[in-house]
Amino acid sequence: MDENLVLEVRRLSGGYRKGGVISRGTYKQILFDVNFEVRHGEIVGLVGESGSGKSTLAKIILGLLDPQEGEVIHHTPRPQIIFQDPYSSLNPAYDVEWILEEPLRVYGKYDKAERKRRVRDMLSRVELDEHYLKSKPNELSGGQRQRVSIAAALIRRPRFIIADEPVSALDVTVQAQVLRLMRSLREELDLSYLFISHDLNVVYQICDRVLVLKNGRIVEQGEVETVFNHPQHEYTKRLLEAAE
C-alpha cells in the first residue's frame, strides 16, 4: 500500500433514501462508481455544477452518510470540514474562545491551561488578534468568521480537511487572503485538502490536482495544469469556457 495516501475512495456509489416512515421510500442514487485518492500534502479540487454530487460525496467521506456500495479508506484520524457559509458554521450563542476550545474539551486529553494555550496558538495561526476571543460570531466579518471556522476545524490538528466552497461567500479580496492562509497552513500543519468548488479560477489558484464530477461520475481527473490547459472531456471544456 502506498504510504503517501491520506484518503482512498474506491468504487463508491451513494445517494439518499427519500420519504417513508413505514414504507422504505425510494432510493435516489447520486454517485456512481467514484474512484480517486488524496495524497499527503495535496490539495485536490473537486469541481462540477450544482447537483453533480459534490456535497453528497463530502458527506459520505465525513461519515455523515453511508455509502451504498464501495468504500472510503481514511489513512488519517477523522477529517474535519470547513463550510461555505461562515454564518451558520459558528454557534451564535458562544464567543470565539468557547467555539475554539470546545473540540479540545470534547477530546478530553488536555487540561484547561493547555487548551487555552492551544486556542491562542491557533488563533494567531489564522492571523486573528487575541481580542477576538471574546467576540461573538455576529460581531465578526465574513472573512473573520471563516478564519475562526478554519481554526475550529484545525484545533485538534487533523491531517485532512474537506473544504466545501470555503471562499464562495466571500469578497474577492478576502477570498485571496483566505486562500493564501489555507495554503500557508498546509505547510505549517502538514495538511491535505479536498477542496470543493464550482469556481474554476479559485481551483486553478490553489489546487494541485482536480477531479471533474458530472452527474455523479468523475469524468476527468489529473494535474490542474494539464486538465485546465488540455481538457479531454467535453464537460470539462464547457466548464472552462463558462469560467472564462
Binding site: 465525513l62 455523515l64 477523522r78 474535519q80 470540514i81 463550510f83 457559509d85 451558520s88 458554521s89 459558528l90 454557534n91 470546545e102 473540540p103 470534547v106 477530546y107 475550529a152 476545524a153 485538534r156
Partner: peptide, 17 residues
Amino acid sequence: NVNYITSARLMGAGSLR
C-alpha cells in the same frame, strides 16, 4: 442540520452534549 451542529458531531460530541 445547521453547520455548527454538523461540526460538533464531527468532532465527536455526544447527542446529550
